[in-house]
């Protein structure tokens, strides 16, 4: 206890909340550079297609599978060219839009829907809870690719429909986690204390339970991000996801697959971007969990002596 008491003076001198957050982000260098990388990716997604769309789709058959690091060429060719001689760097930047839109959309939707249903299942009476849980079991038991095939066979493959399909298949993960956490947290004494004070159910759920379970769910969501990117690429590979000439990182990975032995860079660069994006999200969510938890926050507030 004496430990925490000594930290308190440092905590009280905080100025503006945003400034404090920024300072805490700077303390965790990994999280700081992750944030920078993610901002860069978002910028690529927003502006990339406008400036580079033409370059990224223009074929150049003399530059087929051009090797990377050839700095005598234009900068868009520095990461090499693909099977049709299109510059990889430009394609990665342009593909960021579709990829991030599908993955972010699917992850946020499944997180929101899954958490909501999970909290209802965890907090409500037996019957409602049973119905929701069995529904989740059905989705889980059904092979997600098969489900996607069926849905996308009936609906035209578009970004919107892709998000719907990916959302449905990822819901049970959040639902089950949220429910299990709610069941544990609702038994805690501070929830009982709120009940005794007369707190309404929405208040207990949103004020007392949600903040406790959210960090776990956000962590799962960041891990899920990479998975969604890859599932999306396998759907595209099957011909029911995003179709060429549209591009996504996942699609680029699978397009480079036949050339793995001769031109590794075709799959490597988009793969690396997927890994870096996921890693950044992970590091950032890890930082966020610490920064948002009053019990842990001091770790970011005290000056680092080590390292």
């Amino acid at each position: 206890m004496a430990l925490a008491e000594t930290d308190t003076p440092k905590m009280t001198k905080s100025t503006h909340p945003a400034l404090t957050m920024g300072r805490m982000l700077w303390r965790d260098k990994f999280a700081f550079f992750s944030a920078l990388f993610l901002i860069l990716m978002v910028l690529c997604a927003l502006c990339g297609p406008t400036f580079l769309e033409d370059i990224a789709t223009k074929q150049n058959l003399r530059g087929r599978n051009a090797p990377p690091f050839d700095f005598s060429k234009a900068w868009v060719y520095w990461l090499g060219g693909d099977a049709l001689g299109r510059p990889l760097l430009a394609r990665i930047i342009v593909a960021a839009q579709n990829t991030l839109f599908v993955a972010t959309g699917a992850v946020i939707c499944s997180l929101t829907i899954g958490t909501t249903l999970g909290m209802i299942a965890g907090y409500s009476r037996k019957v409602t809870s049973q119905i929701i849980m069995r529904l989740a079991d059905v989705i889980m038991a059904f092979p997600s690719l098969l489900l996607a095939v069926i849905v996308l066979y009936m609906l035209p493959p578009s970004v919107g429909n892709l998000i719907v399909v990916l959302t449905i298949t990822r819901i049970p993960v959040y639902l089950r986690t949220a429910r299990a956490e709610v069941l544990e947290v609702r038994g805690r004494m501070f929830v009982q204390a709120a009940t005794v004070m007369g707190a309404s159910t929405p208040r207990i759920v949103f004020r007392h339970i949600l903040p406790v379970i959210l960090p776990t769910l956000v962590t799962i969501a960041t891990l899920d991000f990479a998975l969604v990117v890859l599932v999306e690429s396998s759907l595209s590979f099957l011909g029911i996801g995003i179709q060429p000439p549209e591009i996504t990182w996942g699609l680029m990975v699978s397009q480079g697959r036949p050339y793995l032995t001769s031109a590794w860079w075709l799959s490597f660069w988009p793969g690396l971007v997927i890994i870096l994006t996921t890693l950044s999200l992970n590091l950032l969510s890890n930082w966020m969990r610490t920064a948002l938890d009053p019990v842990q926050r001091w770790r970011l507030e005290i000056a680092r002596k080590k390292q």
Binding site: M189, F190, Q192, A194, P211
Partner: peptide, 17 residues
């Protein structure tokens, strides 16, 4: 409002967040 309770373990009865 009129009937309140104080719990055994204050560590658990106060929301840590």
């Amino acid at each position: 409002r009129e009937v309140q309770m104080i719990f055994q373990d204050p560590t658990q009865s106060l929301n840590p967040r």
